[in-house]
Structure formats: structure tokens, C-alpha cells
Amino acid sequence: MSSEQHVLSREKNDILHPPGGILIWILIFLEVITFMIALSVFAYMRSRNAAMFAESQAMLNPLLGTVNTIVLLSSGYFMAEAVRKLRAGLLKLSVRYTLVTILLGLVFIAIKSFEYSQKIEHGIGLEYNTFFTFYWLLTGFHLIHVSVGIVILVFIYFSLRKGRYDARDHEDVETGAAFWHMCDLIWMLLFPMLYLIN
């Protein structure tokens, strides 16, 4: 049994202690379900006006979207690694990986802002049509979550540097990481629905 499994297995089969804490998981479920409801409404609206939605979707830039997805997924990888290193007692590496996570998160925001600015330049705002209403609201709420996630990670980064956490005591880091991964999860739903499938 690796050290990671050992740390985690104490929580196994305990319904009240999912990794990162039960509160964050309640939040994750509510968030995911909320976005799913919104996306279901979106899918329903699309079925009623397929042509307009297809036309609008063609105005999005799938390349930027794909790059951004890769950026976000990579930041998720570094966050997972940061937690793993912390569990193994490698504090320095953990700090470094957290910083990389934050930087990649900022890259995501930068690319997203560029995408937004292009849309605004073309006069495509919130009320352009139903597709773009959903586009702005869904990606906007997601972006808010990413920003909040970065703020949380910055706090964690400084606490890690101060040595507040170690291999045994790091539940806050796990919780913050879970929030960050939640942004990935939501994006896994948004990206194909908005950019890819029709």
C-alpha cells in the first residue's frame, strides 16, 4: 500500500468524510447539478431553434476553447500532484506545484478574456441571441468560480509556504483542491455542450 492509499484508506467507507470534507462535496454536487439544469434548458432551447444555435456556435472559436481546456486540465493535474506531494511530506514540491496551478489558472482567465474581448468587438453581447445569452451566463459563472478558486489557492499557497500544513494535517489543502477540480468538472460539461456538439 502506497503512502497515499494509506492516508486515504482511513477515510474509506466513511460516508461523512469524503476526501476534502463533506461540505465541499455537498457544494460540488449542488454546483454540478445547477450547471446541468442550465445546460438541459440550453439543450431544450437548441432543439426548438437548431439552425440559429448552429449558426451561433460556428461563431465560437473551438481552437481557443480546446487550448483553454488543456490549460485547465493541466492545472488540475498540478493541483492533484501538489496534494500528493504534500501527503508524501514533500512540502517544497507541493508549494511549487500549487504555484504552477495558480499560474495556469491565470492563463485560463487570460485566454478567456481574449475570447470575450473578441466577442464584444463583434458586438456579440449577452442579448445578442438566446445562444449567446447562455454562452455568457454559463461561461461567466464558470469564470467567477475559477477566479474564486484562484483566490482560495493563493491563500493555500501562502499558508503552505509558512508551513502551516504537513503530511498529516492538510484537510484545508484538500478542500481547496476539490474546489479547483470542481471548476474542471463544470468545464467538462460546458465545453462540449457550448463549443462542440450540435
Binding site: 486515504l8 477515510e11 474509506k12 476526501p19 486540465l73 474542471d184 467538462m188 460539461l189
Partner: peptide, 19 residues
């Protein structure tokens, strides 16, 4: 994308060790 959802939640978030 559903598979990716599962990779993130099970592997990165440690859900595979959860109840």
C-alpha cells in the same frame, strides 16, 4: 467528456477512496 469527468473526480479528487 463523461470519461474525463470521471478521471478528474475519481483520480484527482480521490473519489475512488470515498464511501
Amino acid at each position: 467528456f463523461a470519461l474525463k469527468f470521471f478521471i478528474i473526480s475519481y483520480q484527482y479528487m480521490g473519489l475512488r477512496f470515498a464511501h
